[in-house]
Nucleic acid binder design. Structure first.
Lengths: 252, 252
DNA sequence: AGATCGATTGCGGTTTCCCGCAGGACACAG
DNA sequence: CTGTGTCCTGCGGGAAACCGCAATCGATCT
């Protein structure tokens, strides 16, 4: 059995290596990669099926790396090992997990014991292990009790990228007005409307304010934006001629 | 001599403690705090004059903690110890350093040797030590070769917070038109104007796009926004009645 | 003083956003 | 079939953003 560790911080890397060695004595090879792209390469070339992966690395963060690894071999078992339990990260991960894959999500603040247990559960028993706090997030975000519809979230990302209503409409295959309806729901849920006394002037530009609210509440984060920006640029290239030749105005 | 270490990650904390002990044998007390507010409290109660501080902690990140510590005792020597050299962090720090204070900024990727050297230079010789990469940032950002004026940066932060042109004008004591001029310069410098072929429809909402560009280029980051949001809320409270009673429309 | 350059401000006009209103499409209950 | 709900859509208008043009003010150089 062999395990790949993808983690940019040398201290954490050696700590992980040590933890793996003691938790999995049957493991005869522990390899290390110090960023996402090196992780992808090693996983591909040496067919690692067990990976411990840090989120937030650069270049190429853990989610991106995991996505391409899982695309190539969906049965790979990945344990995510991260500082935070943002909604953005949780959502990002549950969006890329292949059906039936074994994976885990444990926080760096967890005890050695918890880490050891997670390692054995995932890598030996092929069983998912997700930290309590993270589970909490999942309930909130997927159960959308307080959270966002998938389509609302997409539109939120789009305005965060700075797109116009029109482009969002064409990207998401909606009418202009529907996009604006989504926006209003978003503004509502984010509480962008100043509830100051009557008659006070609007303090905020709703569109921009919604984005910062989302950032402050950690619905979005820098890494998410970077990924989304990539997707956007791809889409733009594919649809360049569509948009370019699109008459836009249906004629005077 | 005594040293305070403020760092939320236990691994890094113990590494730092060890580094301090070997680099400064004349040091007879090394204390540890695991977030910004605890750091502030310990510094205040035990009058630490030498501090090693992580940026990015929560709650209360390194910059905020340093600001209040320096406000209370400007002669405190602080070594910042961080993963990244964002423009946002560098700018944030150079904005709060008191005149003549000794401080340092070294990256976590630096060698043990560099760290040891920095510890001795700052804590013994009261001499500033700033990593190469960080220096580079300072040139770019303060020398504004490619960077932003202080006032442009302020306006950038304001639109990132989602404020209206009108509110920005009143907050920064500018005319509406000046704010808009600032904005145009910002759009220019961030390259928000799509340079696609002629006639293509505008893809972006400039205002929102500028913010994401700034985030992607790491001119801004979440922590900066949180701080700025605090300041904004304070300002709003102070000026509530000004804005509220402002007639705005001279009314019919 | 005169010239020149930059920064600031006001005046329009165009575009985009924001959103109330109302009509249509589909589902589901009675 | 008729009510009631939710979702999508178009219309229209008011407000904000965006931006070219031109007049003003201040600072610096000759």
């Amino acid at each position: 059995m062999k395990v790949l560790i993808v983690e940019d911080d040398p201290l954490h890397r050696s700590y992980l290596t040590e933890a793996v060695r003691t938790a999995l004595p049957e493991c005869d090879l522990v390899a290390e990669a110090e960023d996402g792209s090196m992780g992808e390469r090693l996983a591909r070339e040496h067919r690692f099926e067990r990976i411990v992966m840090d989120l937030q690395m650069s270049p190429r963060n853990g989610i991106e790396a995991a996505r391409t690894i899982w695309r190539e071999r969906p049965e790979t078992r990945i344990l995510f090992w991260s500082n935070y339990a943002d909604e953005a990260n949780v959502r990002g991960i549950s969006r890329i997990v292949p059906d039936g894959a074994a994976y885990g999500y444990v926080l760096k603040s967890a005890s050695d014991e918890r880490l050891r247990l997670a390692l054995r559960s995932i890598f030996i028993e092929a069983q998912c292990v997700i930290d309590r706090e993270v589970r909490g997030m999942q309930q909130k975000s997927i159960g959308r009790l307080q959270g966002f519809t998938e389509s609302e979230y997409e539109v939120l990302v789009d305005i965060a990228l700075g797109l116009t209503d029109r482009v969002i409409a064409s990207r998401r295959n909606l009418s202009l007005r529907s996009v604006q309806n989504r926006l209003q729901q978003i503004y509502e849920k984010l509480g962008v409307y100043d509830r100051t006394e009557t008659g006070a002037e609007a303090k905020y530009n709703f569109r921009s304010r919604a984005v910062t609210e989302a950032l402050l509440r950690k619905l979005l984060n820098q890494a998410t934006l970077e990924r989304a920006e990539q997707d956007l640029q791809d889409w733009l290239r594919r649809h360049a001629r569509l948009l370019g030749t699109a008459p836009g105005r249906d004629g005077h």
